[in-house]
C-alpha cells in the first residue's frame, strides 16, 4: 500500500512537471489528424471538381469506341473480376486460417512457416504477381490474356490478406465459447462451424472487404494477365478493369478528362464498398450482441 502511494505521488509529480510537454504532445496529435483529413479532403475535392463535369451519359454506353471512351465495360468487368477472385481466394484463405488456428498445434513449425510465408507474400509488390501470373497462367497454362488469368493472379495476391485477417478474427474469439461448445458434447467441426466461425464473421468480412478494395484498385497485376481490352469480357476473354482503364486513358494523354470522370466512378465505388461493409458488419453484430 505504502509503495503504491509513493508511486502515485511520484507519478503525479512527473505529470505536473511534464504538463507543458503533454500539452504540446496533445497539439501535435491533433495537428497530425487535421493534416490527414485535409489532404484526404483535398484529394477527393480535386477529383470531384475535375471529374464530375466530364461525366457524360456516353461514358456509360455498353460499347466502347475510341470516340466515346465508355467505362461501362470496365465497370462490369471489375464486378466480374472481384466476384471470381473472391470465389477462388476466400474458401482457400478462410479454410487455411481455420486449419492453422483451430487444428494445427499452436506455435508448431508448420504454423510458423505459413505465418512467415504469408507475411512475406503480403509485402510483395503487385507487379511481381502480375509477371508471375503472366508466366504461369497466360503462358504455361495457356490461358492467354483472360479474365481467368487475372482472377487467378488476384486470388493469389489477396490470399495472404484473407488468411491473416481470418486468423486474427478466429484468435480473437474467446476460448470460453469453444469450451462451452465442447462441454455440451459438440465435436471440433461443429464447434468451429457453429460457434467460432459465426463469432469471427465480422472480422473475416472486414478482411474480405479489404481484399475487394485491393482488387478494385489493382492495375499492375492485371496489365499482363487480363489485359486492357475495353469490352464486356467472359471468363476466357481479355477485359480491362476500371483502374486499368483509367490508367490507360491518362497515360495516353488524349483522354485526361475522361480519366478524371473514371476516377470519380472508382472513388464512388470504393466508398460504396466501404459503406456496404460497415452496414453488413453492423447488421451482423446486431443479430448477436
Amino acid at each position: 500500500m505504502k509503495t503504491l502511494c509513493r508511486y502515485t505521488r511520484r507519478m503525479s509529480a512527473f505529470l505536473r512537471r511534464h504538463y507543458v510537454g503533454s500539452r504540446l504532445m496533445n497539439f501535435a496529435v491533433h495537428a497530425a489528424a487535421a493534416v490527414t483529413v485535409l489532404v484526404l479532403g483535398f484529394l477527393v475535392a480535386y477529383i470531384v471538381v475535375r471529374g464530375v463535369p466530364n461525366l457524360k451519359p456516353s461514358l456509360f454506353a455498353l460499347q466502347y469506341t475510341s470516340d466515346n471512351q465508355s467505362m461501362l465495360p470496365a465497370i462490369i468487368n471489375t464486378c466480374t473480376m472481384t466476384f471470381i477472385s473472391l470465389l477462388l481466394a476466400v474458401p482457400f484463405g478462410v479454410g487455411a486460417a481455420i486449419d492453422l488456428t483451430e487444428y494445427a498445434r499452436r506455435g508448431s513449425r508448420l504454423t510458423r512457416l505459413v505465418q512467415m510465408t504469408t507475411q512475406t507474400l503480403s509485402g510483395i509488390p503487385s507487379i511481381v504477381y502480375g509477371l508471375f501470373g503472366m508466366l504461369m497462367f497466360n503462358n504455361a497454362l495457356q490461358l492467354g490474356y483472360s479474365m481467368l488469368s487475372g482472377a487467378l493472379t488476384l486470388a493469389i495476391m489477396i490470399l495472404p490478406l484473407i488468411m491473416r485477417t481470418t486468423q486474427e478474427a478466429l484468435s480473437a474469439v474467446p476460448d470460453m465459447y469453444r469450451e462451452g461448445s465442447f462441454g455440451l458434447g459438440a465435436g471440433k467441426l461443429r464447434t468451429v462451424f457453429f460457434v467460432v466461425l459465426p463469432s469471427a464473421m465480422p472480422g473475416i468480412l472486414s478482411g474480405v472487404i479489404l481484399a475487394i478494395g485491393r482488387i478494385v484498385g489493382e492495375t499492375a497485376a492485371l496489365m499482363y494477365t487480363s489485359g486492357t481490352v475495353a469490352k464486356v469480357a467472359g471468363l476466357m476473354d481479355s477485359g480491362t478493369m476500371l483502374a486499368l482503364h483509367m490508367y490507360k486513358q491518362a497515360s495516353e494523354g488524349l483522354y485526361l478528362n475522361e480519366a478524371y470522370a473514371t476516377s470519380v466512378v472508382l472513388l464512388v465505388l470504393v466508398l460504396l464498398i466501404n459503406l456496404l461493409s460497415a452496414k453488413t458488419a453492423k447488421l451482423m453484430m446486431k443479430g448477436r450482441g
Binding site: 474467446p174 470460453m176 465459447y177 469450451e179 462451452g180 461448445s181 465442447f182 462441454g183 455440451l184 458434447g185 459438440a186 465435436g187 460457434v195 459465426p198 463469432s199 448477436r288 450482441g289
Partner: peptide, 20 residues
C-alpha cells in the same frame, strides 16, 4: 468423449452464453 460430455454437463465460472 463427446458422448461423455453430453452425459456430464458443465457450467463455467464466467457465464459463457454463445453470441446467438
Amino acid at each position: 468423449v463427446n458422448h461423455l460430455r453430453k452425459r456430464v454437463g458443465m457450467v463455467f465460472q464466467k457465464p459463457n452464453p454463445f453470441p446467438m
